[in-house]
Nucleic acid binder design. Sequence first.
RNA 1: GCGCCCGUAGCUCAGUUGGAUAGAGCAGCUGCCUUCUAAGCAGCUGGUCGCAGGUUCGAAUCCUGCCGGGUGCGCCA
Length: 583
Amino acid sequence: MKEHIQQLLEQTVTLLKEREIIPADAAPRVQVDRTRDKSHGDLATNLAMMLAKPAKKNPRELAQAIIDTLPASELVSKVEIAGPGFINFFLDSGWLGKQVEKIATDQSRANVAALAQPQTIVTDYSAPNVAKEMAVHHIRSTVIGDAVTRTLEFLGHKVIRANHIGDWGTQFGMLIAYLEKMENESASDMDLSDLEAFYREAKKHYDDDESFAERARNYVVKLQGGDEYCRTMWSKLVDITMAQNQAIYDRLGVSLSNDDIMGESLYNPLLPEIVSDLTEKGLAVEDDGAKVVFLDEFKGKDGNAMGVIIQKRDGGFLYTTTDIAAAKYRVDNFDADRILYFIDSRQAQHLQQAWLIARKAGYLPQTTSTEHCAFGMMLGKDGKPFKTRSGGTVKLADLLEEAHQRAVKLIGDKNPDLLGDELETIASTVAMASVKYSDLNKNRTTDYVFDWDNMLTFEGNTAPYMLYAFSRIQSIFRKAGVSADALTGEVVIDAEKEEALAQKLVQFNDAVLSVSAKGAPHLMCTYLYELAGAFMSFYEACPINKDDVAEATKASRLRLCAATANTLKVGLSLLGINTLERM
RNA sequence: GCGCCCGUAGCUCAGUUGGAUAGAGCAGCUGCCUUCUAAGCAGCUGGUCGCAGGUUCGAAUCCUGCCGGGUGCGCCA
């Protein structure tokens, strides 16, 4: 919608340049904003004020020239000058009605077209560690990354999910040695359901038992050398861990699978050649026995160029080297246009350094953008890192189970008729939706305060509010005895709340585009919340299944309902949230 | 010491790469269910946008300096 007005204005700028009303070298960024106040129309531009100075004209005068030159459009019913030189656009209600009809007809896309020029985009998210259970802090990367991934895919981009799991490092010698010990001691299949305990015990043996520790160190060397036995044991650890993580992905509704695993080990074989290449190019130098890249762009504690170690004195590599390799790999193998990293904000400097080195080495071309979609830590209501009562790490599986139990109780209390499977199904959808939404809803790169009461009271700006709006619409269709996809009536925008709802509906496309441009799903949350709110107001003000409602009005309003339902369903699906027919 | 992020209502947060009178939800207070799901709607109350300067037609937004919080800075990842 905005784009269309933008195009009209761009044409106008060209025409005005030809007529020498504005200088030929002016290159204004044509900006179209939604207005806050109805009296200012529906969309506005500040173009005249931006061009007033270069054109040496009074802004209002120039605004008039723009309006006089503006090509006619079916979208716009009226254009006005306001205030110091704003140009206000009023959308045509006939056009709005036609748009709503298209949205109502399109269940799968709500009238959002795929992009004509799709890109190849790598999304790096989730990244759990092998031999550890997913903890609560993994939820942010996983849920936010998945929502953006779904949105990019929806727009037609080729998206490559990269689950950068922690499957490499010196700790694997210890883990393999302990796995071996367990297998030797119990004839039956090992039970690794409690990975935390497994890791803890392995560490304990490593610290207390010298012969165990020696075997562990030996296994590290053998594993890195490609020893078949160690490789098999390592592979078991990865499989067991990822099977458990997959159960969490499935429960949460995260679109990752085993096919998306691209762990640290994938890049390990590339590291030696990267170090030698960086050395040959003069980027890396030996310093105190280690291979170091000095970056003038970053200052160290002594005020000189900061040194980033890419290879340790003992020959081992560090995660900066892995991230350089990962960037290179994604360019070489996928020809990525964008690489989005959904990683904790504390990694910002590290990522900047890795990318800078990759750029200097020519691994990352100018045409590939690397974007850190950063987020803060999860805090408890007390403002301290979110922990269990005893101070331990909260397991993600436990958090999801608690959300489910809370949802069962709340829904059961609210709706005592619901029992058994139906209650469980509704509670499950509501619980996962609530957990995800409360995370997705916030833009903050700073920390996020996790609060059960805010997400599961089911009031206000929450997932249940939107699920409720959706199920209310389904209820209207049941009551009317019609199927949403069989509606044919013409949409006529008449009442104030109808217009407000229609206005919101046609903004969906803008919301999808902004999420994809910024990697920020909260923009979708904000949009859907406003849409659900507009629907609730419409619902109160505009009766449908009532005796005194004219047939044509009823048909029109039913299609507004269908358009809203489609938009909510598609929008929520882009966030990875399922809808409910009843709740 | 240097770098990055942040500071908006009692609380949780928006604020569209400078726009019109800074917005929601929760909490508090008023109304609205024999009528499509009241998990809702309509409304009221609540702000020195951390502080001080600067840039301009216009600043929560950009610049500078302070104050306060978070986080990172050579052999973990």
